[in-house]
Design a protein around this nucleic acid. Structure first.
Lengths: 318, 318
DNA sequence: GGGATTGTTGCTCATCTGAGCAGGGTGCAC
DNA sequence: GTGCACCCTGCTCAGATGAGCAACAATCCC
């Protein structure tokens, strides 16, 4: 396009979008036919001079969702807009809201819903509306009775989600990670626990988040792991954890021994499940989000615009 | 509007603006009639959820221009967009470009054009295109042979503008400010200089910028004033200078004695002229811009969005 | 210079969209 | 319960707009 045409397209855009003139009127002002004006406007759009943004906490980015689906093979992707967001916390709240919306719109309603625990899932539980999915049975898929702070967070998340669904919650009364393998095996042998785990394995849908591998991990906060242990895991390639299990960029378990002592469904069970919803948001979680998506650990991803763009960029230049 | 309607309007906006669906198609997806969709989109716009921005160096902000004209009585206002601008320098370049565009579009073409000098005017001269206004006679309206650096800037600005117009330049071969009043009067008595000044007083249109009153003023750079002198002027209410003369917020000369020693047309001559174009941009110039506009020192203002908004806000809360 | 190719222009026509209006439902006062 | 005012809905209709097309101009290659 010529230089003068570019300038004209800007003038036309000003009159069209800011002054609400019709293309006809603009034609009179700029001494052009209305068809020429229409073409100038189209070219202004095509050149990216016109930026349309939807500024709202509930706004999603459908084009990015589509590209994510196409480039990753996800069955669905929910991407919230990060327009006008100042903090990571706000972004994560938006993402949790979007996850709650997605869960609410699920059809058919899953009879059994497996969930993990953590700040994100807790956030999701708060955003759900009363009666969001009548009769769902919520089952915990990984251990998580806190050792110190946050007592009961895991249980309360599950209970809240179940309660708001007018359904029931099945809790997994177990720590996330045992010190000794024998204790963990004994625990799993218990009929009650075994029953919960069996239920978890057969859930129709899973919702889980993922943690970054650093000192701020929920597993550190809860006292299951030390910062030193995390550092060691990172040194061995860990990018984060899913249902309490640390994986590397290729989706492989970083520390098989530690993994054996971790209570809950296995990564492979998640990978094989037909409907797994990952809710991952925030700049510190780009790496683990990438690992989850790349290695097919989820079929649906709920995330923010920035994380989604990070995933897409990496796809473009593999 | 109800909460669900608000959410629906966002969903509709996503489909309409990001996915280019018709209102009819959106109606099918959201299970609404197309009229409802149309109303939701209108309400999304009305609520400010839809932000349309024209991202281009030459983009202007017509609604702000209109409000400026209405609230200040300017005959015209040119406001460049500051969308996507990182530095003040870029903003000033855009403003200079817009001033050049405005000058180029002037009809009838003024026979004599009075100009001041400075970084801004120099910038304008560079943005003008060859043949922008055939036959214009450009005349300097204030003195400005630099004492040290920037030698010839003032002259070269005038010559460049005239040259690009295929016209002639009449220079004012004089310092901006004299040390002694007697010298200045003797200079003005010189027939050549007197002729130039007479020509300047009778110009059909004027283009000038304005300087802020601080250590970065062009008059300090050029060696006419010391930082201490500026500080003194500021203490006496100066907000900046126009054609080398310092004024306060009410448009009054701050230091009459200094003013007497300054060569060029008077503030009052500018105020009485029917066509005076001020080009003022940048965050440091909000105060002087306000003084110029409030006190009728220009009939046309070329500025940036931020400065224009500053002017408007002050109007709203006087 | 001639011919082919590419891009531009002004048009017709079908579709999309907003303004205005009538009917029906809802809430409120009496 | 009845009447009234208000708002919301779905409609008609006219104006606005985009797709597609034929004529024309510009450019390039021979």
């Amino acid at each position: 396009m010529s230089d003068t045409d570019e300038l004209l397209s800007i003038r036309a855009a000003e009159l069209y979008y800011e002054e609400n003139q019709t293309q006809d009127e603009i034609g009179v002002i700029l001494r052009l036919t209305r068809w020429k004006v229409g073409r100038l406007l189209a070219s202004a759009k095509a050149n990216g001079f016109i930026r349309i943004e939807i500024v709202h906490p509930r706004a999603r980015r459908l084009p990015i969702e589509r590209r994510l689906r196409e480039s990753t093979g996800l069955t669905d992707a929910i991407v919230v807009s990060s327009a006008g967001v100042s903090s990571d916390a706000e972004l994560q709240s938006r993402t949790a809201q979007a996850a709650a919306d997605y869960l609410t719109s699920l059809r058919p309603i899953p009879r059994t819903l497996g969930i993990s625990w953590g700040r994100t899932l807790h956030d999701v539980s708060l955003h759900l509306k009363q009666g969001w999915a009548p009769g769902v049975n919520v089952v915990q898929i990984n251990g998580g009775v806190s050792l110190n702070q946050r007592t009961g967070t895991a249980a309360s998340t599950a209970v809240t989600i179940a309660h708001k669904a007018d359904g029931s919650a099945t809790l997994l009364p177990s720590p996330a990670i045992f010190e000794r393998l024998e204790t963990k095996q004994a625990m799993e042998a218990d009929r009650t626990v075994a029953g919960v785990l069996a239920l978890a394995r057969n859930a129709q849908a899973y919702v889980f988040s993922a943690g970054q591998a650093d000192a701020h991990s929920a597993l550190v906060d809860s006292g299951y792991l030390t910062v030193a242990q995390i550092d060691d895991l990172v040194a061995r390639g860990a990018v984060g954890d899913v249902v309490g299990r640390y994986i590397d960029a290729n989706g492989r378990i970083v520390d098989p021994e530690l993994n054996e002592r971790t209570v809950g469904i296995q990564i492979d069970q998640l990978r094989r499940a037909p409907h797994t919803i990952a809710v991952i948001s925030g700049h510190s979680k780009h790496a683990i989000a990438r690992a989850v998506v790349r290695n097919g650990l989820c079929t649906v991803l709920v995330t923010d615009e920035d994380t989604a763009n990070a995933l897409l960029q990496e796809k473009d230049t593999p």
